[in-house]
Design a protein around this nucleic acid. Sequence first.
DNA 1: GCCGTCGGTTTCGTCAAGCAACCTATTGCG
DNA 2: CGCAATAGGTTGCTTGACGAAACCGACGGC
Lengths: 171, 171
Amino acid sequence: MLRSDYPGQFCSIAKSLEVIGERWSLLIVRDILNGHRRFGELQQSLGIARNVLSARLQRLVDEGILERRAYQESPPRHEYFLTEKGLDLWPALIALMHWGDRYSSGPDGPPRLIVHKECGGEVSERGICERCGEVLHARDARQVPGPGWEAAVGAGAGASVSGGRGDGEIS
Amino acid sequence: MLRSDYPGQFCSIAKSLEVIGERWSLLIVRDILNGHRRFGELQQSLGIARNVLSARLQRLVDEGILERRAYQESPPRHEYFLTEKGLDLWPALIALMHWGDRYSSGPDGPPRLIVHKECGGEVSERGICERCGEVLHARDARQVPGPGWEAAVGAGAGASVSGGRGDGEIS
DNA sequence: GCCGTCGGTTTCGTCAAGCAACCTATTGCG
DNA sequence: CGCAATAGGTTGCTTGACGAAACCGACGGC
């Protein structure tokens, strides 16, 4: 996006979009949710230009959506974690994912599923476990390959389904 | 946004964002959900450039999110309505709105509330009526001014809270 | 005839997105 | 030591979407 504000708008949707409506922002949040934490991992997974990734990470840190933690000094190296504010984007991501599943996924079904960590039930569009009925949050769920995954892997698309480390562990 | 695709992404979130991640797209959907149906209404409510609005409407129609219906001939005049696909974006919009409410609204509270048409209960972040517990869809809810509304109206921001006609009637 | 309205399309300048190349500091290897 | 690789950026350049404003074509009212 160019300017990131929607002047004259008095609406929380517009406010949200000022922050996370920029191209790539939500995908970065998604990737960090999936366990990617380092610059290089994100860059490779997303296929985003490095300067743009740098700018987006900076913006997301400034907005309090990400936290930047050093994991070593000299040379300084950092990892990016979601704050509570960032984790709270999870319901919106789930809703968008299900919408994409419904209208854009092929005949094989959705490429990825979200399941409740505790009971293994699928998570609905509303972020509710379809097995146990619990209203879930980001930390309660993880991602697994869906029925449409293998078909697309054959076509050579995408990155690994779960993060670089222990699949989708948060924070 | 520049290019509207995220090459190499194999993820329904990315797919969704290719369609509705463009600047203004979700706000147009929101406005139509609120009862704005005509070009001029949308343009005035959003403060968007006319050429951009024209292009976005065209795109949303092409994607099957909006439907363009003539309401008179000579001169041809149209109204834009949400299709089922468009209405299904409602949970995502609700989630984004609540996120914005939580983190961007002032001390007075959210500017707008979503209520269940049938029982008048407030609608939660997950699109569930907090009074009767029903899982709602776009047609089951409408928008009303929230506690933060008057404070901001005093500051002279924004357009009317409900659409030009019978507040937020869908389709 | 003239003005205003509605729903656009065209033109044009600006500024951000995208790409590639470069930079800094450190580690590993011979 | 010299050379390469890795991680995490920064800098410059090109392109193209966005925004503002002008234009347009068909009406309606006066």
